[in-house]
Amino acid sequence: MRALQRYRIHLGTAAWILHRLSGLGLILYLLLHIWVIHHLAKGQAEFDGIMHSFNNPLFKFLEVGLVGVILYHLWNGLRVTLFDFGLFIEKQKQVFGAAVVLWLATWAVVAYAMLTRVGGLLAAVVRAGGGGLS
């Protein structure tokens, strides 16, 4: 690619750059994921060992970030897919706004579930909703 051109970053450009970066992030994550999973072939001890080394707050934090990257790629990917079907092309900025709202909302929900541990959250829901069950 020729030297990066100095040009105004419009909303559509920003959406595209983030899409590309999140795509790159997903590729890097997949490589890491495959590398981790391949320890299964080396036996239980090896696999438990590698899983243990990821069991710390830093990786918990990175996991929440990963979900954010996946969800951005998902919602903006759906935005672009709408355009491929000829829908809302003239409203691309509003569609981006909607995608960002959905991205942040879904990220918040999933991050909350992850950080509070899903089991604990579900237990809370059961307690709140169907008190007599437990």
């Binding site: 040009y7 419009h10 559509g12 450009t13 595209w16 691309q92």
Partner: peptide
């Protein structure tokens, strides 16, 4: 084309 919309702008 990556639907960047710079052309439209």
């Amino acid at each position: 084309c990556h639907t960047i919309f710079n052309c439209v702008e």
